[in-house]
Nucleic acid binder design. Structure first.
Lengths: 256, 256
DNA sequence: TTCGCTTAGTGTCAACCAAACACTTTAAAA
DNA sequence: TTTTAAAGTGTTTGGTTGACACTAAGCGAA
């Protein structure tokens, strides 16, 4: 770990890292009581990946670093969505105990800046590092008690994600380069928590110009093989490429 | 001012306070070199109202307090939109000099959490307090160099506001209880930096159910008097009341 | 080889909404 | 009484949404 002088004991960054596979939206969580931890306490172990911010880095760089350490990937889609600063956010007894074993200033008040990250799970091999001893993907429906205020942070991330996929074409960042319309629709339905009509969805997506059909199809599936599509935009122009017309049954609409 | 023990020297809150009058969108800025200041330096004086966060308050409460101190009003619409934490954000020489006169730990790195506030200028009488010696409304087109990274923060606030008024019915928070369609349209046009068609705008607004026409009209204006409208929603349910269909020519659209 | 299972893939119609567009009304001031 | 300034008002065209149900393709089991 770093010298205490290079860490700001008052500001941290936490990342809600979303991944999508097998029609399931997951969050990448770490177990703070993993093999290398001296702190043993069986419940309330899972946490959003995060760390204190270093003196020589800005907030985006801190979030990038955390993702790089954990996944080996850089250039991942990251969006800062909210800072959490309740004075009591780290006041639970078990959290304080844990902090005593890890932090130079365990009693310092910590404001955390929360990011959401969208990653293509087929690209990532989790490599737990530093004091992160175990990391795993957890379906969002199975997320129980997290440490500190991380349940609240995760809830905020999910709301932010839901709002954003309705404005910016960022859903593709959760999918492999080639995907089927079924994948894409299932992703939208999962995040929006609502079903949409298949025909309308496909029409909208194709008509919007966001996706391009490939000649290829699935092979070896036990039903009609689905056509593959690719996202039709520069791979990573800025963070959110452009704002696009993306309407779908029954959600928010906007000045236009 | 407060004792140093009650302030967190590492985290501050800055507010971009928007007001609208005479068809002009303004920001409420303070002059940090006002009458009571010992630091005299003529340029680069204006700043977003802000302060360090106190140990016993959360971020929203800190922002509320700043607004209360400055305007005497509480319950103002506040929305946290971004944290700014560049290590060099307070590194300009003049800013450092000023900090030396004001802060217990002038060299501490400070992360700031930025809020935007929307206020009805007819309700507010500015009362500069504490080390805020001069406060004034500045049209956003006339904003020059601000202190620290406040130009960047303000830019972010404007973008956030532009996005939000297209999703949530919050524009009304910038207007008096009674307003004309001309006021409302002009407000939208100013924030969106784009003109919209008068007939389409009125139809959309009335049809959306967001506004209700009053029997009253303007009196004593030297042209056809305009009808007054009121916002048709509980005065302050939550912060953003509900998400509503608010389309207007040529801007972002969204899944729906 | 046939049948069943599963998911992919497709088209139409009606209702609504968006966008473009210009003239009349009202009041005060000159 | 004329001028000036802003308010207020409808229609048409075209595009989008949303609702709706059947066929196609491939695999595996009988």
């Amino acid at each position: 770990m770093s010298l205490s002088t290079s860490l700001n004991p008052h500001v941290s960054v936490d990342c809600s890292i979303f991944g999508f596979s097998d029609n399931s939206l997951c969050l990448l969580l770490i177990n703070r009581n993993g093999a290398k931890s001296t702190f043993k306490n069986d419940d309330n172990r899972f946490a959003l990946p995060g760390d204190l911010v270093r003196d020589n880095e800005n907030l985006d760089e801190a979030a990038d670093r955390i993702l790089k350490e954990l996944t080996g990937l850089s250039g991942i889609f990251l969006h800062q969505f909210k800072a959490f600063g309740d004075p009591l956010r780290i006041a639970k007894a078990k959290d304080r105990d844990w902090l005593k074993g890890v932090r130079q200033e365990p009693d310092a008040r910590v404001i955390t800046v929360a990011y959401l990250a969208l990653i293509d799970r087929t690209k990532v091999e989790i490599k737990p590092g530093s004091f992160t001893n175990e990391a795993k993907w957890v379906p969002i429906s199975e997320i129980k008690d997290l440490v500190f205020d991380h349940n609240e942070i995760f809830g905020g991330a999910l709301l932010a994600l839901r709002e954003m996929i309705q404005i910016y074409p960022i859903a593709f960042k959760l999918l492999p380069v080639k995907f089927t319309m079924g994948d894409l629709q299932s992703l939208y339905e999962t995040i929006l928590e609502r079903e949409v009509d298949k025909r309308n969805f496909r029409r909208k997506m194709v008509h919007s110009g966001l996706v391009r059909a490939l000649p290829e199809k699935q092979y070896g599936v036990s039903n009609k093989p689905a056509r593959f599509y690719v996202f039709n935009g520069s791979t990573s122009e800025g963070l959110y490429s452009s704002i696009v017309n993306l309407k779908m049954e029954g959600s928010i609409t906007v000045f236009n």
